[in-house]
Design a protein around this nucleic acid. Structure first.
Lengths: 215, 215
DNA sequence: ATAGACTTGTGAAATTTATCACAATCATAA
DNA sequence: TTATGATTGTGATAAATTTCACAAGTCTAT
């Protein structure tokens, strides 16, 4: 109840989604208890780091036995805000936006894709699953109607800031930005950057070291 | 030439792709010099952090003027291994794999999508852009023919480990894994995890704090 | 030439994060 | 009941990262 008032280090928060996944897997297998050692193995981290992380919000481990999977799951879900549902809009239905609309992982984590927007007249009215693509101008209206709280931004980089302004104006406070640009937003809006290139460039760096493929 | 032998902190390495993007933008605008302050603004970090980062590999800044954009660009590209080209295969041509195959950001950063694989007979032979989808059994052969060095893994989670074993067997040393599972691989294989859910859960956490939407 | 405005590079300090190591606790079996 | 083995929780320590602050270098205008 007061867990979120405790200060959880950023580094720990960044790992919670990973813990959530492993715990989900264990829960699925009907496993009741898991030791920090066992879980850390699956995650590729040290058990002491895991225990320390869990200690920030009271993992309630039992010495000699381990952690209660179901309990930990609930706890981490609560912290990550996954225990309630979020209504999300996807803006920009290119390949990436479309892939996102169909990505089952979202629904599984309490993210409900509730509306689709684009400005390409040719796309308006198309259906993806149950949802039709609306014109972006309907965003304010739909935001109120559906209680949209998150907007996934999958438009070309040049359009990103302009569309962001519309999102902000409509009163949406969470933006999941796939466009490779920094967005200007008011203080009260949270932007999460998602940039595929970062990942592959990291890989590229590690590989060029490993393979000695210098330039 | 010896830059890569200098130890660059992990945290710094993680920011280099972001620097690369901003520098690319500036270069496109024909801007020759940029100050740490100006660049840091665009990135949303502090100028001292940027200067410290650049100092690890010699940014060659000029006091009173700033950094030479073209020089920095070359330097960072070299470190990230972007100055040469990598041949990448995409394995699993679902929505995500298809979106990736068409993602222009890859080519721009020296990642060449050179082959597509799936095991769904219905998909074999389909074309995406210039490339046809091959059966996964052709991987070893194609790897030799095309010099494939990276495999983007966009298959369902259940299949991920099995396909990984095939990738490893074919001699590919870099895996860009989009499946939400940890992969078992030999020491000499580098796995870069890309998990969309992490990003949106972080957003969810921040939002639930901000909006006071507790469970 | 000189003054004044800018900007870098970097030691030192502060902060954050990770690891270590072990006492305390719990379960189990004899 | 007691011994044994397993596992947590956490201070203390170490390591990594960020921030601070300013001397030193460079440019521009006069």
């Amino acid at each position: 109840m007061y867990d979120d008032l405790v200060i959880i280090p950023k580094a720990t928060l960044g790992r919670l989604p990973l813990y959530l996944r492993v715990l989900n897997g264990l829960h699925h297998l009907n496993i009741q208890f898991v030791s920090s050692e066992e879980m850390a193995m699956k995650l590729g981290i040290t058990s002491s780091q895991l225990r320390k992380d869990l200690s920030y919000f009271g993992g309630q481990g039992i010495r000699g036995t381990g952690y209660d999977v179901a309990y930990l799951l609930r706890k981490i879900k609560a912290i990550l805000g996954v225990s309630q549902n979020w209504q999300m809009a996807i803006i920009g239905l290119g390949k990436l936006g479309t892939a996102l609309a169909r990505y089952p992982g979202l629904q599984q984590h309490g993210i409900n894709v509730a509306a689709l927007f684009d400005i390409d007249e040719a796309k308006i009215g198309w259906k993806i699953g149950e949802l039709s693509i609306c014109h972006l101008s309907e965003l304010p209206e739909k935001k109120k109607e559906l209680g949209l709280e998150i907007a996934a931004l999958t438009v070309p980089a040049q359009a990103a800031q302009e569309v962001t302004d519309l999102i902000v104006e409509a009163g949406i406070q969470g933006i999941w930005n796939f466009a490779p640009v920094r967005l200007e937003t008011p203080e009260n809006v949270i932007v999460q950057y998602e940039d595929l290139v970062v990942g592959v460039l990291t890989l590229s760096h590690l590989l060029s070291r490993r393979l000695g493929k210098m330039s």
